[in-house]
């Protein structure tokens, strides 16, 4: 099934990325290893070849998409209407928050936040739980908080105490 909108975004993104690659290749001084191993095998030449192939492939995709748009006079509506559901978006934000604040809040606290929120929102959607039922929601959050704490204590005991893996402790010190 053709999804013109998505293909246009994909083609454009890859096109821009390959242009970036070509720009980056300019930073590599010319002539490095060219004489010994030939241009294609040199660090610069290899990068240019791969970037050029990607540029070509993305151009073909863009041209095919524009042609399909012209033939269909606009976007084709497909079953892939939902591009970024709320739960997926929240997960992405949580993951980015987790990594960016890992050294500040530490592994335990960050993981606790990540686990409780993701478990709750996924469970609500997966089991079609009524969000307006506050009592049920509160009991779910409590249940997942306990589960998260138990899981994290077990993980910490195994990895930090037993296997000596270093995990950031953050300002709280655990």
């Amino acid at each position: 099934m053709v999804n013109i909108k998505n293909d246009l975004i994909l083609g454009s993104a890859i096109f821009i990325f390959s242009l970036f690659m070509l720009t980056e290749s300019k930073k590599i001084p010319s002539g490095i290893l060219d004489e010994q191993i030939g241009f294609v095998a040199s660090p610069k030449g290899y990068l240019i070849v791969i970037a050029s192939v990607l540029l070509l492939l993305s151009s073909i995709l863009l041209l095919k998409t524009i042609r399909a748009m012209y033939l269909n006079k606009g976007w084709i509506k497909t079953s892939k209407e939902i591009f970024l559901p709320k739960e997926v978006f929240i997960s992405m934000i949580l993951l980015l928050f987790f990594v960016s604040t890992l050294n500040i809040f530490g592994f335990f606290l960050n993981s606790f936040i990540l686990l409780v929120i993701t478990m709750t929102i996924y469970y609500l959607k997966e089991k079609n739980v009524d969000v307006n039922n506050k009592k049920q929601l509160a009991s779910l959050i409590l249940k997942f908080s306990i589960l998260s704490i138990i899981s994290l204590i077990a993980i910490q005991q195994v990895f930090v105490r037993l296997l000596n893996v270093y995990l950031p402790t953050g300002i709280l010190g655990f």
């Binding site: 990594v99 686990l115 993701t118 997966e126 893996v165 270093y166 950031p168």
Partner: peptide
């Protein structure tokens, strides 16, 4: 339920990837 399994697997992935080099960059 996947709603419970996935977050726990995610935490394991985070530990595994972090423990390779102890670098937050790998988590990014």
């Amino acid at each position: 339920p996947l709603s419970i399994l996935f977050p726990i697997i995610l935490i394991c992935c985070i530990i595994g990837v972090y423990a390779l080099n102890n670098r937050v960059a790998d988590l990014w």
